[in-house]
């Protein structure tokens, strides 16, 4: 019979729940221009901020900085990439929305063949920054206060996603291998979250789909030639599941289709590739989330097949003024 204490304990426990929920669902920008991570489109408190820091180690026969995934037969590229960005969540027409900017950077090296001659090339520097805007169309309303976070359950949610990349990254028109792409490109997509079962930290399960269409401008100075790329359809799929309140995993799949590239009218192969992967995520504390992932293409033994594998580690720092204030008050009363 310690009612006062029990009440206060209940409230303290509540705050802990609130903080954990906010942190777990904090904004998590993409670690790759090619595929967004699982749980990327879960919604959090409006007014939140996120800064991702993502490291990727990639090898394959395509330039990972190139969203067209143009295959260079028999090539072997090695790339180390980092992506940094900033994202802000906000309400728009009472719907959850966010805007983000992501800047890739890093280095890439590999053997490329030009006119039958093979040479080793490398590039480094900043890539093309990408602007991203997302708004939820079907699903819970924007989260405006802490109870809204606790009430959030995606159920069946559908968003509208628009990406636009600015062609201002490092580019050398004398080289085939670049970090910047020297052309405008972007995509529209519809992220879908399908909640499976209860929405309880430690038990959450989702099936997430992202059908999207990439659209590319022309690169009019690709080693003195014109590069055109047809639209590419991409379907990302993730089956995610909490292992504990803070630890989760995902089976990831990607399918690319289309995106035929032509150089001065010489057409390449149309993409039709599948990649599979695993992701593990862990919420380190109220602000910091860690993920580790591996992805690889499958059925890629033919030289013309897209071949790529990637290790990825991401750290995402998220914050919100309310949560920061609560943290500052910890221990004060």
């Amino acid at each position: 019979m310690k009612n006062k204490r029990i009440l206060m304990k209940s409230v303290v426990r509540l705050w802990l729940v609130v903080i954990a929920v906010l942190a777990v669902e904090a904004f998590c920008p993409p670690q790759s221009l090619a595929q967004l991570p699982p749980r990327f489109y879960w919604k959090s408190l409006s007014g939140g901020n996120g800064v991702p820091l993502i490291f990727e180690s990639i090898s394959g026969n395509t330039n990972p900085f190139d969203p067209a995934d143009t295959v260079t037969a028999n090539a072997d590229f090695e790339a180390t990439m980092a992506l940094m960005g900033y994202a802000k969540t906000f309400p728009l027409f009472n719907r959850a929305a966010f805007a983000a900017v992501i800047v890739p950077m890093g280095r890439i090296s590999g053997e490329v063949t030009v006119n039958g001659k093979t040479s080793k090339q490398s590039a480094e520097g900043f890539g093309d920054p990408m602007l991203e805007f997302d708004i939820n169309l079907i699903g819970p309303p924007a989260q405006m206060n802490i109870p809204d976070i606790l009430l959030y359950q995606p159920g069946f949610s559908v968003d509208l996603l628009v990406d636009l990349t600015l062609p201002i990254g490092e580019y050398d028109s004398d080289k085939q291998l670049n970090i910047g792409m020297n052309r405008w490109y972007g995509r529209i997509g519809m992220p879908i979250i399908w909640q499976l079962g209860l929405w309880v930290p430690g038990q959450r399960t989702t099936l997430e789909l992202l059908p999207s269409l990439w659209l590319y401008g022309d690169n009019n100075d690709f080693v003195g030639q014109t590069m055109k790329t047809d639209p590419k359809f991409q379907m990302d799929a993730h089956l995610t599941r909490d292992f504990t309140k803070s630890f989760w995993g995902s089976l990831d799949g990607t399918w690319f289709y289309g995106g035929k590239t032509s150089i001065n009218g010489v057409e390449g192969e149309e993409l039709n590739s599948v990649g599979l992967g695993l992701t593990l995520g862990y919420q380190i504390n109220d602000n910091l989330g860690l993920t580790f992932g591996y992805k690889s293409t499958v059925n890629d033994s033919d030289p013309e097949d897209l071949r790529m594998n990637m290790f990825m580690v991401s750290l995402v720092f998220g914050w919100h003024p309310i949560i920061e204030g609560m943290n500052r008050l910890k221990g004060e009363f």
Partner: peptide, 19 residues
């Protein structure tokens, strides 16, 4: 109202929601 129970109007939305 029992002396150890807070007046709900002084509580923030989160505890009001949870309780």
């Amino acid at each position: 109202r029992m002396w150890f129970i807070p007046d709900p109007i002084v509580l923030a939305p989160a505890p009001l929601y949870i309780l």
